[in-house]
Design a protein around this nucleic acid. Sequence first.
DNA 1: GATGTCGGCCGGGTATCCAG
DNA 2: CTGGATACCCGGCCGACATC
Length: 370
Amino acid sequence: MILESHGDACRLGYLRLIACLLEDGSQRSFDFLASVLYDMLRNLEFYEPLTQKPTGLITRYVNARNYVTLAAEMGFIDRASQTIGEFGKIYLCLDSADKFRGFVEGRSIPSLNDIITLNDAEKFFFLWVLLNRDYPMIQHVLRWIIEKRSFTRQEAMNQIMEEFYPISLRKVLSTLNGRRREQIMREIEEAEGFRKRRLQMGDKISWIKSSQYAKYRHIAPPRLEWLVDCGILKRIGRGKYEIRENYLKSRTEILKLISLKPAKLDNHFFNEFVKLFSKSFSTANRYEILKTMIEVYERLRTLFGDEVNLSTLEYLTILVLMERGKFADLKMIHGSFNSLALKFPDKIYVIPGRKKNMNIAYINVEEIEV
DNA sequence: GATGTCGGCCGGGTATCCAG
DNA sequence: CTGGATACCCGGCCGACATC
């Protein structure tokens, strides 16, 4: 679960830049990343102003820093080593990373709009990351959204902070130890009294000025905004949200998806779930699948070395195909991989990985002719 | 001192309500 | 019904404080 969040950090798109900044594998302090990020962005608006400004734009060094923290929480940065994290690496294998890589390397200047909007594949990618990294908070929020369909920011804040926040904290408590655990235990105790204390507050003015409300603002609204970026919610007017039509239609499948723990959800996400949206893409043929898969393999190999997880390769192939307007489901991709492995048994093979249920894919790219 | 976390302040946009 | 006043609160900004 994402424990550190800040009201400033509402736009997921910025995380892509942070991944690019860490691509070479070197260690970078949070502070350094924040200042580079801030410097890169400071004059952007000048070139191509936005027609309407969303919340969460980076305008100061301090909020750039809040995004760096979010990147760590989202697994884009590995906190311990201050180098690129797993999800950051995976992101870098998408086609879209090229645009931001160009920006980071000073070859091109994107518009501010490019920086904050996500393409369809990226929307799925970030939703997948959220389901993994913000478990179980985001699952609670999603379930509630599906029931409510439309709601105000205000009621969502109360619901999230007074119901889901303490429940979720309790759930992650067992994964923590030492001082962190103590801290969270105190936090849970406090959170369980949130509603009571809010209702005790006489007038709304002092409520909004209260420290409790400030805390609400830092924890609840960013999650709603992340879901806006992922294309699940849309904002209607000030402080109001509504679920997008296509997500409402797939209600049962989504309820199934959010009932799964992170360890179980990946397969369901890239199998049953993304399939619901396949209509907006044309079907990929075997040649396209294999060509894309090998490209993705090469990218993964650069970042992960010899240990390319077969599942990651397959998931990413789905996403990159989407970026190219194509769709293939997991079965098709798996089948394509296997048929190629049969044809070139010495150049493509799978070996068991170190973790349970993990397989390492190996492809001798130079000698494969698709 | 550096780094990370918390939370208060307040400008200004927006919804709402009321008078005409 | 409509235009204007006003209460409300969103969201940006930044400083204080804690911890390493």
